[in-house]
Amino acid sequence: MKKNLWELVWFRAYADLKSEASRTYIGILWWILDPLLQMGIFYLVFGVGLRGTGRTENFVQFLLIGIIIWRWFATSVNFSSGAIMQNRSLVLRLDIDKWVFPATLIAGNTFKFLIAFAMLIGFLQYSGMPLTWHYLQLLPVLVVQLVLVAGVAFVLAALVPLLPDLRNVVSHLIMLMFFLSGIFYDVETMPEKFQWVFDINPMVHVIQANRAIMLHGEMPDWQPLLAVLALGLALMWTGAKLMRALNVVYAKALQAI
């Protein structure tokens, strides 16, 4: 049964991606073009000096790593919080495990992220950033982030159908977190009294680990990453438990809307 559900997740993710590609003329080329254009714009604005380059060295590269990593988190979490409601007709007709719906969205989003991430690495190498053996540690760093994304997404996906108002709160919280994740500034340059805010923000650690490897050719700091991994696993477990416990409650909640 479990195996069937994973097959369903992959196939629905494939279906979503194919639908998305079919809606435009150049289709899948957009998955390459989108990150390219995004990088181009940031290069134009911050790289060639249209707007001051900031105090951070290699600011464009610094910024792009933050933004591309952040987008994976924010879009997955944002979409997933509406995942069960979005599949209302299926929920009302099939007795199906609900984690399938956020998992499908995360799978599709992760695929698009990986394309953007590959383009980012290409750009970083082109612009002379170091290529070291530490790059091999990118894989576990990405796994940690995937677990975090899935954890937050599962918990929100589980709660939003019963508390639809939560979704409005979530978009503001994501915005707040964006500004507190050190995406366009280096958290280490911030005043000491605010450091605790960054310490408890898991995305700060994920973004810093990526920058350590790709910008400085250094080993990432694994201690906070392991804490992020533990947090992600705990959230995933909680979300999956919630979805299981509420499995038959969702249909009724969606029926009444």
Partner: peptide, 13 residues
């Protein structure tokens, strides 16, 4: 299970 004709069909597939 419910005979679910057209359930979950995706137009672009």
């Amino acid at each position: 299970s419910l005979l679910t004709i057209n359930l979950g069909f995706v137009q672009h597939l």
